[in-house]
């Protein structure tokens, strides 16, 4: 790189810092110095190359990461089920206490996507006092939608499917079901044509 004595009084450290701040605020002395410009360009090229190396490394690993490796990796990961809060199904008595876990309720909500083609459910949130059987709760659901599906139809179907499932398996009073469309994505390669184009 340009030797420090050709940097018109600036240091490599200063330039490296300047680059990381997106060359902003503009430093006129640095921008006017040919030596500094050379050094900055070299560092910028290096940054591009770093990105390329990261991509090449990852691609190489993808080739090596065969299914056996992935299976071994997965098999060794210790996980704990996430039950979440316990939601009573009716008022507890000295001899009886019936409930359903928040985790089970979330999986019910995720399962509602089977009735709403084109929707993939992401994160689910239950807001309200889950400690009482007939609590008023609002439900927040993040979803992704496959291109080609009508957003309004799909989300309306999902809303109905969620309401039905919650009514069958909990005693909660559902105040509102908010659905946030996080993104649109391509279908799976194995996915057929969406049912309802347009």
């Amino acid at each position: 790189m340009t030797p420090e004595d050709e940097l018109d009084g600036h240091t490599i450290e200063e330039l490296s810092d300047y680059l990381d701040h997106g060359r902003s605020p503009r430093n006129r002395s640095i921008e006017a110095s040919p030596g500094c410009q050379n050094a900055l360009q070299a560092m910028e090229r290096l940054r591009d190359l770093a990105e390329q190396l990261a991509e090449a490394d990852t691609e190489a690993e993808k080739e090596r990461a065969d299914d056996r490796w992935l299976q071994r990796l997965l098999a060794g990961i210790v996980v704990e089920a996430r039950p979440g809060r316990r939601i009573p199904l009716e008022e507890a008595t000295p001899i009886s206490d019936l409930g359903i876990t928040e985790g089970a309720v979330r999986s019910l909500i995720r399962d509602a996507e089977t009735d709403a083609p084109g929707i993939v459910v992401g994160r689910t949130r239950l807001h309200g006092d889950l400690g009482t059987a007939t609590a008023e709760v609002s439900v927040n659901v993040d979803v992704g939608i496959v291109y080609g599906h009508n957003i309004e139809t799909a989300t309306e179907r999902l809303r109905t499917a969620i309401a039905d499932r919650l009514a069958a398996h909990t005693s909660l009073q559902i105040r509102v079901i908010d659905i946030t469309v996080r993104d649109l994505h391509e279908p799976d390669e194995v996915d057929g044509t969406p049912e309802e184009l347009g």
Partner: peptide, 11 residues
Amino acid sequence: EAQVVVTVVRV
């Protein structure tokens, strides 16, 4: 007169 606690953890 035992207390029975039943929890649905999965559907």
